[in-house]
Amino acid sequence: MKANVTVTLKRGVLDPQGKAIGHALEGLGFDGIGEVRQGKLIEVELAETDRKAAQAKLDEMCRKLLANTVIEDYAIEIVE
């Protein structure tokens, strides 16, 4: 089983990298750029075959290591 874990900064947490990317896009002439926020994607392969069990395991991984829940949110998507 394979999962994509997306980790993003929580709403309300300043994201200076996202801001810089937004400015750079405007600098390139892209109009109508709203807020840009940067996150990261972590692909995890699992031996687990039960979807529910995999989801629970991934959730624990996120809380223990993959995300710092003080400032980050995470989303888990099982892709295959």
Partner: peptide, 17 residues
Amino acid sequence: LTETGMLPGVLMRNAGL
């Protein structure tokens, strides 16, 4: 120490990048 939870909060990227 913040990552272990021994101290609260987190050290983020410097505001000036």
